[in-house]
Simulated scan of single mutants.
Amino acid sequence: MEGENHTEVLQFLLLGLSDDPQVQLPLFGMFLSMYLVTVLGNLLIILAASSDSHLHTPMYFFLSNLSFVDICFTSTTVPKMLVNIQAQSKDISYLQCLIQAYFFMVFAGMDNLLISIMAFDRFVAICHPLNYTTIRNSQFISLLVLISWIIVLTVSLVHVLLIKWLTFSRVTEIPHFFCEITQILKVASSDTFINNITVYVATALLGVFPAAGILFSYFQIVSSLLKLSSIASKFKAFSTCGSHLCVVCLFYGTTLGVYLSSAVTHSSHGSTVASVMYTVVTPMLNPFIYSLRNKDVKGALGRLIKTCPP
């Protein structure tokens, strides 16, 4: 197998979003700005939820975890892309690529699971309000988050260990701006049947099942709301999950758009551009959705800003 290597791949090349030198500076400025806004916005959500006693509830505990995951999610891809643009290089080492793919899968999976847990939280709060405190005690919600971390860390580790058995060319081009698992499998020189089966299983476990849980939760919520006689009561109850519903639509809408665009156009560049939506844009918009639509968060942010020294 001359020209190929099993364990000593010299480098991968991330082809990025564009080869045009004239767009590199605008790309750098745009992604740096979006990254800073993402980090700042999600940090403010975490600080507001942790510092304000009014927000010490399960929903805002999950929201703080989601903000933390969104910061990490974006940090796995954008900083490396910015470094490559600044250095006018496309290189990423084999080890760095595996590490990036691992943590990308971890935080993408946690995003899915946290969003589904938040949907279940709203289902319990609206459909079983009398049992809400009993069901959603601090030990239970901490256990849910811990189990979610264990699942995504284990599943992602299995993916990376299986990739270690694949062979690649000494200089392998990845038509993406980060080491995404499916793109890595496409450029492998050896058989990826087992890897692809594992991807399907992981997609079902971390994607399909959480999405089904969200649909079930909101089906039950809508059914409960329809039974209410007062329009004001319906609006008040549904407004408690309005922000989360917006996040669900944004996350799953952009993710579905990536795969649909890839299936329709069969273009790796089109899929790469579409990936920017759920890897960069969605984590950036989540804090705005929760702060602009939620009076409690806006109040906590206002009090947090007032306590800051001038």
Rank of each mutant, 00 (worst) to 15 (best):
N84V: 12
Y278W: 06
T38E: 09
V23M: 06
S267H: 09
T133H: 08
H176T: 02
S189H: 13
A108K: 02
S261C: 09
K90C: 13
H176K: 07
P79T: 14
L17P: 07
V155F: 03
T307N: 11
L98K: 14
V264I: 15
V208L: 15
F62G: 06
C246K: 05
V280S: 08
S271H: 01
K306R: 11
D296V: 00
A125T: 11
I135D: 05
G109A: 02
I221F: 05
C97D: 06
D19L: 07
I92G: 01
N112W: 02
P175E: 05
I150S: 01
C179T: 08
T272A: 15
G257Q: 09
L250Q: 04
F68N: 14
T282N: 10
N196Y: 07
L66G: 02
D111Q: 13
Q88K: 15
I45N: 00
Y259V: 09
I99V: 15
L228P: 01
D19V: 06
D111E: 12
L144W: 01
V124N: 07
I184L: 15
T172C: 14
V264C: 09
V201E: 08
V281I: 15
F107D: 07
S50V: 08
H176Q: 12
L82P: 04
D19I: 04
I197T: 06
L292Y: 02
E8R: 12
A188H: 05
V222Y: 11
F209I: 15
V106P: 04
L44F: 11
A274D: 04
T134F: 12
T282G: 00
F107K: 06
V222R: 13
D20T: 11
L15A: 15
I184F: 10
I163G: 00
G3P: 02
S53C: 00
T198W: 04
S217I: 14
L225A: 13
Q220S: 05
T279D: 05
Q86A: 15
F209R: 04
N294T: 15
S223L: 11
N195H: 04
